Amino acid sequence: MIKNFIYQNPTKLIFGKDQIKRLSKEVQNFGEKVLLVYGGGSIKKNGLYEQIKNELKDFQIFELGGVEPNPRVSTARKAIEIIKENNIDFILAVGGGSTIDCTKLISAGVFYEGDAWDIVIGKYSPKKALPFGVILTLAATGSEMNSGSVITNLDTGEKLGWGSPLVYPKFSILDPVYTFTVPRNQTVNGIVDMMSHLLEQYFNKEHNPLLDTFIEGAMKTIMKYAPLALENPNDYEARSVLMLSATIALNHSLDLGVIGDWGTHRIEHAVSAVYDIPHGEGLAIIMPNWINFVISKDTDRVKEFAVNIMGMDTQNKNDIDIAKEGALKLQEFWKNIGSPVKLSEVNIEEKTLGQIADLAAKQVVGNAYSLTRDEIYQILKMAY
């Protein structure tokens, strides 16, 4: 049964070619001093950096580059100090989900006198946040239109998710052209990420039939356009479909009245906390094995996934076989577009699987299908 819910998303989505021309108009609502936050520097190679500086020529710009693929609390701390020292009014996050996630913690941490990690672990609940906007360069996480964030702490060996209604972006500019130069492996990781977000919401106990249809359609659309974008990185239509799909996949319009499982994400966070591998790679490895494992917990739902999304034939087959074939076909799809599908492929040592299971089990793993520490370990063994 669909649960009661309230839905509100305050982020203004600005989609399409040359929408960066709106940047100055959007930023001027928040002040004159802007902190530009970005990742490894690709925006300087593709010309976006210069475009931003030109559009914001009437503003005072400060910078923090080098946000990691698994963003670290230490980086957020540096940015918070820059903002406090210079009385900055607004943050502009330019990049993918990692940059945006880090910016969300920066935004909330500015008005807290303690350590930013306290916000991530729930020790402190933000009461105020510095406004920020986004220019998206990678179709993947959906962080550009939600209030969630995932942060890594190297000192504690943890990678944890957190969120606050205060850290929705004020606006997000999505120009598919900015994804043309994204390396193939990052494009693949983004495809896996957006598909995983859809599936995490599809596997639930409430089964909103309307949203089931939306998710099934979105999954099939992504699987149609993903190979086109990989074959021709400058295919505007394919890049547009992927970019919008990633945003919709996690702006919470597809989990109305349901509670997604998110078990795969909890396990993957533990994997990448220990090994610092790309999030998309970890999801591609864990999720098909997780689906296989939960067949015994909910055969009917996995069969629906196999038939309605993966297009499995049901003729002369029992439900369990159909479900298993669906999980295998998903794994094959990700493998065919270039993702690793085994932990051994990304140099993870089998002897550390117990450590990873212990770390994952510190949180609740699985909202729809709760997993014990031993069950997590079994899934990791299946994925090795």
Score class of each variant (00 low, 15 high):
residue 302 V to Q: 02
residue 232 N to S: 14
residue 342 K to E: 14
residue 248 I to D: 08
residue 287 M to A: 11
residue 327 A to F: 01
residue 233 P to N: 07
residue 298 D to T: 01
residue 318 N to E: 15
residue 249 A to H: 04
residue 318 N to F: 09
residue 326 G to H: 00
residue 308 N to V: 00
residue 340 P to W: 04
residue 312 M to E: 14
residue 341 V to R: 02
residue 336 N to A: 07
residue 249 A to I: 04
residue 273 A to N: 05
residue 240 S to H: 06
residue 311 G to N: 01
residue 304 E to Q: 14
residue 232 N to F: 13
residue 246 A to M: 02
residue 249 A to F: 08
residue 332 E to K: 12
residue 336 N to C: 03
residue 260 G to E: 13
residue 304 E to D: 14
residue 275 Y to T: 02
residue 299 T to Q: 14
residue 246 A to R: 00
residue 309 I to H: 02
residue 316 N to F: 11
residue 250 L to H: 15
residue 302 V to Y: 03
residue 247 T to Y: 12
residue 253 S to L: 14
residue 333 F to I: 00
residue 250 L to N: 10
residue 264 T to R: 02
residue 262 W to G: 06
residue 288 P to D: 03
residue 273 A to Y: 09
residue 271 V to Y: 00
residue 278 P to G: 11
residue 300 D to N: 13
residue 300 D to G: 09
residue 241 V to W: 04
residue 252 H to L: 09
residue 330 L to S: 03
residue 306 A to T: 04
residue 240 S to I: 02
residue 255 D to Q: 13
residue 292 N to V: 01
residue 254 L to W: 13
residue 311 G to I: 01
residue 322 I to R: 03
residue 263 G to F: 08
residue 241 V to T: 03
residue 308 N to S: 05
residue 311 G to W: 02
residue 284 A to E: 05
residue 319 D to A: 15
residue 319 D to S: 15
residue 263 G to A: 14
residue 324 K to V: 05
residue 261 D to Q: 09
residue 320 I to D: 15
residue 283 L to K: 00
residue 316 N to Q: 07
residue 332 E to V: 04
residue 289 N to S: 05
residue 331 Q to M: 07
residue 278 P to M: 12
residue 311 G to L: 01
residue 283 L to F: 00
residue 339 S to E: 09
residue 288 P to Y: 01
residue 241 V to H: 05
residue 263 G to I: 04
residue 235 D to T: 10
residue 296 S to N: 15
residue 275 Y to A: 00
residue 272 S to A: 03
residue 277 I to G: 12
residue 291 I to C: 08
residue 285 I to R: 09
residue 340 P to Q: 07
residue 308 N to W: 01
residue 240 S to F: 06
residue 284 A to P: 02
residue 235 D to C: 11
residue 250 L to T: 06
residue 240 S to E: 12
residue 323 A to N: 12
residue 270 A to R: 06
residue 242 L to N: 07
residue 261 D to N: 12
residue 337 I to V: 04
residue 282 G to Q: 03
residue 330 L to W: 02
residue 307 V to G: 00
residue 321 D to M: 05
residue 238 A to N: 07
residue 259 I to E: 15
residue 277 I to S: 14
residue 312 M to K: 09
residue 318 N to Q: 09
residue 282 G to V: 01
residue 260 G to M: 10
residue 239 R to P: 13
residue 252 H to F: 15
residue 284 A to N: 06
residue 237 E to G: 10
residue 242 L to S: 08
residue 291 I to S: 05
residue 342 K to N: 14
residue 308 N to Y: 03
residue 283 L to M: 10
residue 263 G to M: 05
residue 299 T to K: 11
residue 274 V to R: 14
residue 301 R to Q: 04
residue 246 A to F: 06
